Amino acid sequence: MAELPEQVTDSAAFTPSAEDIASVEAWFADYDKMAARGDAAASADVAMFPLNVVSDGPSGNGSAAQWDRETYLATMSQVIAGGTTMDSTREPIFLTGNLVVVITNATFTTGDQVQRVRYADVLVRRDGRWLFQTMIQGGWGDYLGTSQ
């Protein structure tokens, strides 16, 4: 086996600081406000395109797609239509100081309708700011426009 670069092996020892964790929590607080307003354009501004979208569908098969900004806006404009409140708990799992996988358990409430969901996001820090690069959530596979 080839010797791994030091940066790769150093990642095994990374422990996020309180500031690292707070920066991810602040990013999600801002994103949640955008979603509550139904502001898909603002949420697109904090994404890294092409955006990876991973899901599965009723057939039980996994599915993945890459979205450009236009595809994201067309889809998310319908998904985050505004008027929804969200209560969530998040668990950030830092791979390095610049890569974090965040597991979210959330309850969405729109009027009298309450839905519970679990999903994950991969955030990448670029030029000192977090951007989401991958969205992972079950059940959307039939809507990704990819074969399963």
Score class of each variant (00 low, 15 high):
Met1Arg: 09
Met1Cys: 06
Glu3Met: 11
Glu6Ile: 01
Glu6Gly: 04
Thr9Ser: 13
Thr9Val: 14
Thr9Gln: 14
Thr9Ala: 07
Asp10Val: 00
Ala12Lys: 11
Phe14Leu: 08
Thr15Gly: 09
Pro16Leu: 02
Ser17Val: 00
Ala18Ser: 15
Ala22Asn: 15
Ser23Trp: 02
Ser23Arg: 07
Val24Ala: 10
Val24Asp: 09
Glu25Thr: 02
Phe28Leu: 13
Ala29Pro: 08
Ala29His: 13
Asp30Phe: 00
Asp30Asn: 15
Tyr31Trp: 10
Met34Ala: 06
Met34Glu: 11
Ala36Trp: 03
Arg37Cys: 00
Gly38Ile: 00
Ala40Gln: 03
Ala40Lys: 02
Ala42Asp: 15
Ala44Val: 00
Val46Ile: 15
Val46Asp: 13
Pro50Asn: 07
Val53Ala: 10
Val54Lys: 04
Ser55Gln: 09
Ser59Met: 07
Gly60Cys: 06
Ser63Lys: 12
Ala64Val: 01
Gln66Ala: 14
Trp67Glu: 10
Asp68Glu: 14
Thr71Gln: 15
Tyr72Ser: 05
Leu73Val: 01
Leu73His: 07
Ala74Met: 10
Met76Lys: 10
Ser77Gly: 15
Gln78Gly: 15
Ile80His: 08
Ile80Met: 12
Ala81Leu: 11
Gly83Arg: 05
Gly83Met: 06
Thr84Lys: 06
Thr89Phe: 04
Arg90Asn: 08
Glu91Tyr: 08
Pro92Met: 08
Ile93Cys: 12
Thr96Gln: 07
Asn98Tyr: 01
Asn98Cys: 01
Val100Cys: 14
Val101Thr: 09
Val102Lys: 05
Val102Ile: 08
Val102Ala: 09
Thr104Tyr: 03
Thr104Gln: 13
Thr104Asp: 13
Thr107Leu: 11
Phe108Ser: 04
Thr109Arg: 12
Gly111Leu: 05
Gln113Asn: 09
Gln113Cys: 01
Gln115Lys: 06
Val117Tyr: 05
Arg118Tyr: 02
Tyr119Phe: 04
Ala120Ser: 08
Ala120Gln: 08
Val122Ile: 07
Val122His: 02
Arg125His: 03
Asp127Gln: 13
Gly128Cys: 02
Arg129Tyr: 04
Trp130Val: 00
Leu131Cys: 08
Phe132Ser: 05
Gln133Lys: 06
Thr134Ala: 14
Met135Glu: 09
Gly139Gln: 06
Trp140Cys: 01
Asp142Asn: 07
Asp142Glu: 12
Leu144His: 07
Leu144Met: 05
Gly145Thr: 04
Thr146Leu: 08
